[in-house]
Amino acid sequence: MSLDAIPIHVIDPPSAEPGLSGNAPPLLRELSELAKRLLASGETSAIDLSALPLTPADLAWLQDTLGAGEISVSLQANGESTLNETACPGIWWVTHRNEQGAVTSQFIEVAFVPELVKAHPEDVKNGQEYLELLISDL
């Protein structure tokens, strides 16, 4: 039996997507505060977007408003992650995806460089040891 034999109606996703909830604009104010804190004390912070009552339209509005900056980082680790600078330097839009490409979590990070991009000293040490190994093999 083929799939066509099963009477399934494919329905267009609801056209009336839930509109703006009004929860997104206050985030800009919060981001501004967090950026001020980053400048004053160097303290980094993040906002978990999936923990907030934001509609898809809210997220789109937020992404649109914050714009795109100069840097976009993509990380291949158990699915793709993108860490994109917004038009406001120091504000990063971080999206984690799983191997199937579905978004697992989304953050806005306020930092000079996102935490994930930095190499950990332990890893640098491992890399350096590997370099030594390469040199000794020359």
Binding site: S45, D48, A77, S81, S105, E115, L116, H120
Partner: peptide, 23 residues
Amino acid sequence: GITRRTFLKYCATLASMMALPPA
């Protein structure tokens, strides 16, 4: 063969799922 970044990413998602603050 699991890198530190993969692990960090996993922890970030897990924390989000458990409704813990990003930090």
